[in-house]
Design a binder for these strands. Sequence first.
DNA 1: CGAAGTTACGGATGCCGTAATGATG
DNA 2: CATCATTACGGCATCCGTAACTTCG
Lengths: 323, 323
Amino acid sequence: MKLKQLQYLWETYNQNLNMSEAARVLNTTQPGISSGIRRLEVELGIDLLTRKGKRLGLTPAGERIVQLARDTLQKVDSIERAAAEFQHEDRGSLRIATTHTQARYVLPEHIRNFRSSYPDVSLHINQGTPAQLAELTLNGDVDFAIATEGFEHFSNLILAPCYTWNRSIIVPKGHPLASVDEISLAQVAAEPLVTYVFGFAGGSSVANAFANARLSANVAFTATDTDVIKKYVRLGVGIGIIASMAREPNTDEDLVFLDASHLFEPSVTHIGLRPEVFLRSYMYDFIESFAEHLTRPLVEQVLSSSRRHEQQLLLEGFELPRR
Amino acid sequence: MKLKQLQYLWETYNQNLNMSEAARVLNTTQPGISSGIRRLEVELGIDLLTRKGKRLGLTPAGERIVQLARDTLQKVDSIERAAAEFQHEDRGSLRIATTHTQARYVLPEHIRNFRSSYPDVSLHINQGTPAQLAELTLNGDVDFAIATEGFEHFSNLILAPCYTWNRSIIVPKGHPLASVDEISLAQVAAEPLVTYVFGFAGGSSVANAFANARLSANVAFTATDTDVIKKYVRLGVGIGIIASMAREPNTDEDLVFLDASHLFEPSVTHIGLRPEVFLRSYMYDFIESFAEHLTRPLVEQVLSSSRRHEQQLLLEGFELPRR
DNA sequence: CGAAGTTACGGATGCCGTAATGATG
DNA sequence: CATCATTACGGCATCCGTAACTTCG
């Protein structure tokens, strides 16, 4: 059975059982319609049309099958329309899973740019813990994750380094440490600390620094959310350890930011991709705007490689920007 | 677009994205499959498959279009069956997916009648788990399903209630419980149980009864198959909970059947239909013989209704027979 | 006799199958 | 190295379009 045959049958029916008219509508010839329907009848083993000279009619079977032919053609049409929607590369959705700090302090500028380039793409930012980010990504609930900690959860994902960042110690204005020139780890260890819930996870650079110096930290309060940390620092609960990029010029004037890049190894923010993910072209664009060395050809090459080793190799050796 | 291309795509998907296997199933060659799908992609202007060397994956567009392709092929199939219907009212095949209990204890009498009315219809009974029944039905691999449990898998199907049935407790002759007049749930809970794998699924009447009575059941053994359950009851593994209709007068004389209709809510056996299914006239006959209130006009009306709500409404309010 | 459908037939398109090549585990 | 996919290419079937014939109002 050919779709064309069904189309011929349907259009002939639609044109009041006039093959010549159907041929005109379908930009073909009348004998073509005739033989097409005839072949369909032969294949199905039943007559669909009654023919009395030039006068056509529908058999009972024909009535039934004309309807089914229409249904089928509608389904085919829906395939074509679905395909057309996927063709419009500037429509769709972009779903990112990330942590609060990224969503709050890093993504906004990229998203502003992105929205002006792709106004018809809907955006979904999904916040969560590192374990949640990994799961969302693996399940395909998001297109990719942007993460800085908890990489032990990401073993099945491709991790593309994006940029490095350092931490700052924040204290309220007037705090004894506020005027210190270069703060020491011992000074930090002497104060109650307010920091990220995951900031002390095994292997984090903060935890490493304290461990190497044989100092134990007094963690008074943790939150997932930089704004909450600032709040409690303002309340005098302790001194904060936060990402330096979380400084806001306008609203943070009552806080003193002490650079801590000499105390803690810089961390690297990564994009986490499921190896089998299919990226729309605007997704490549977003990634490149987020980390300009992650060009589309590079990412495509990484994704098309099936060996983990090769994937990571391709992503190494870039001079990462600092934030 | 060619139907063959849709078929190639669907079968490749169906064979776990293995073109070689699809080629085997479709009696053609692997390069044919490959180029067929490729031509479809070119025509639609989108990639359907991701190709990493020999490893295939589905793009998001592919996922969507695979489903639409299946729908289309099902429509085509319905055309062929409709044609066959007009050719020979009494030839074709009847494919039913059901569980072991139905196949073993309920269907035989209906099938005996059916075979005498339609000797030229070939019969295919497909056994499986509730999830498998649902999938077979949705894929159009069977004409309909007959199921009693696991309706959470059937959300996309029309469910027509057929009859209600109760359970019995079976114990070997000579068992202490064999002479009990009316067995209590506490007595059942005190014994190791042998029952259906799916009998304790959430929402099953057996699970509900125990939960409501704050009793926990000691399920010693489960099987999909009533014969296996009987076997293990005979071996003394525990007492059985099975469908009452599974009693066989001749061979079950060494077992005592204790009616349990006062312990567990009756269950309802349903016929599950794909809403777009095309039923041959002998299929309507079979359904009516299986559940006499499901007459052809009623079922036709249900199938022609496009609103789920209406469909189910039409099927309610019948006094169901008990078995 | 004009409008409409069928039959007949030649030619181009496009599809399938074989064979060779490439990639992966 | 076995498996599985893609590429290349030649033959062949299918289907379309032109032309001639037929039927009916």
